[in-house]
Design a protein around this nucleic acid. Structure first.
Length: 457
RNA sequence: GUGGGUGUAGCUCAGCUGGUAGAGCGCCGGAUUGUGGUUCCGGAUGCCGUGGGUUCGAGUCCCAUCUCCCACCCCA
């Protein structure tokens, strides 16, 4: 009888146990870091009514969303976590306290062509702060700090948080009388790093039919580089000509002003006037974070300020600011670059017990005692050869193997083998537990998520 | 959605101008009784993506189809 070939769809990441452990470990670090800033965990359904997810309508979302019928229901898989959040906040408004700070780590789905570092199912790790009617700019200033702390906690060093403010851009384009085209211009200018100034200019003049002098003015404006202070100084010269621009400038100033107090080092931060973010719901500060050694993969964390995200679901003004880490993409790069530490304890258990007596009760009692002591313990009672059981422990990287046979029972001890060194001890149960715990403590102390940290400096 | 590639053992691939398949890694077993990771020896595994065509004969040439990959679009 012919079998169906097992396969996983392209663009869907499926990991082996050891890798999955590392993925979970990264998620734990994110949860802990997010919690440090007072965010509460949240989960929402993967499937929602299509009209809820497509409330905004049009554009890429419509093209990329997975949508299907089930009976009479028109359903869709969430393509981000922000829209479900907007729905959630609008729906549960009366039960929430504002500013509402939530984090959410979950899978999202996009029906587009898979590519290197681009998935059709991937994890996003989001944080958002939603205000009731108003939301202080200070929240926007806090975001880089969260990004910085999160990436640092993962062991990353060579990353840059780029910040811009959309009001500065729309204000500037309005000054040039190009207000209507500002969206298109932003998207074109966003490619500066990728295609270079000449092509950007050509694109501006040819496809957007902007005059050569305006195009040059735009390029001059956005290519203002250097340190944060020099960019701000350059921007100052445009003040007083457009209200929106001035507002954006003031907001950007606030964000920059508190960086030091929030503990964000200057080298991990930059004002970059080219970034705009494709998503059109952003209205103020926007963020984009890239790994300096892997610019080709694009942003792994982005977000921004939006003034009225839940406008499709409620009349209440619910402004917010948030970011999203592309966890699957990040994990993919780390793995591809060999930066995920293979020596991390990925073993499913700390101890493997090999019973060698007819009566299994002593071994089971031992396992129970170890588990009571908080040691992850697995019993290996399968009908296999002794050496195969050791090989099993070895493959799973289980650090300790405990053997319990007639000899041990007769003298009231257990044999405990340290798999890394090969050393064996014959001690009573409690002494063995102490030895194992000491060993595990040592192991955990030295554990870091990423290795080759030198490469990341 | 548009354009370009790819498809051979579990994985990474080799297979020259057509003559019914190979390596490395991995996997399994052995080197005598309760000791893995190193070494040595042995072993299994492929409808050569699928369907059709040319040919005495096709993994190797032609057509179609699917798949996956890369670029664009857009994005985490």
């Amino acid at each position: 009888m012919s079998k169906i070939t097992p396969r996983t769809l392209s663009g869907f990441m499926e990991l082996l146990p050891a890798q999955e452990q590392q993925m979970q470990r990264i998620q734990e670090i994110l949860r802990k870091t997010y919690a440090l800033y007072g965010f509460t965990p949240l989960d929402t359904p993967v499937i929602e009514s299509a009209d809820v997810l497509l409330a905004k309508g049009g554009g890429e979302t419509e093209k990329q969303i997975y949508r299907f019928q089930k009976g009479d229901s028109d359903l869709a898989l969430r393509f981000d976590l922000t829209v479900p959040l907007a729905k959630y906040v609008a729906l549960h408004y009366n039960d929430l306290s504002f500013p509402f700070r939530r984090y959410q780590i979950g899978k999202v789905y996009r029906g587009e062509r898979a590519q290197r570092g681009r998935f059709r199912e991937f994890y996003q790790a989001d944080i958002d702060i939603i205000g009731d009617g108003k939301l202080s700019v200070l929240n926007e200033a806090e975001i880089p700090s969260i990004i910085y702390r999160t990436f640092s906690a993962l062991g990353l060093k060579r990353f840059q948080i780029r910040v811009n403010n959309r009001k500065i851009l729309t204000g500037f384009y309005a000054m040039l009388g190009l207000g209507e085209k500002s969206g298109d211009i932003m998207r074109t200018v966003d490619k500066l790093d990728k295609i270079g100034p000449d092509k950007v200019k050509a694109s501006l003049t040819d496809t957007l039919s902007i005059s050569v002098s305006d195009a040059e003015e735009i390029l001059r404006f956005i290519s203002v580089h250097g340190g944060t202070d020099s960019v701000l100084t350059a921007l100052k010269s445009y003040l007083g000509r457009n209200e929106t621009f001035d507002e954006g400038f003031s907001e950007l100033n606030t964000v920059v002003q508190y960086l030091g107090a929030f503990g964000v080092p200057a080298e991990n931060f930059a004002v970059d006037l080219t970034i705009a973010r494709g998503l059109d719901y952003y209205t103020g500060t926007v963020y984009e974070t890239t790994l300096l050694d892997h610019p080709e993969i694009g942003s792994i964390c982005s977000g921004g300020r939006y003034d009225n995200l839940a406008g499709f679901y409620t009349d209440r003004a619910l402004p917010g600011v948030g970011i999203s880490i592309g966890l699957t993409r990040l994990f993919y790069i780390l793995g591809e670059q060999g930066m995920l530490n293979p020596s991390l304890p990925t073993a499913p258990a700390d101890v493997l017990i090999l019973p060698m007596t007819e009566d299994l009760a002593p071994a089971i009692q031992l396992a129970t005692r170890l588990r009571e002591a908080g040691i992850r313990t697995q019993l290996h009672c399968e009908d296999k050869k002794f050496k195969q059981k050791l090989a099993y422990a070895n493959k799973l990287n289980v650090p300790y193997v405990v053997m319990l046979g007639e000899n041990e029972l007769a003298s009231g001890v257990v044999t405990c083998k340290d798999m890394a060194s090969g050393e064996q001890t014959k001690l009573d149960t409690e002494a063995t537990i102490a030895r194992i715990q000491a060993g595990l403590d040592r192991q955990n102390k030295g554990a870091v998520i990423l290795e080759k940290r030198v490469n990341l400096l």
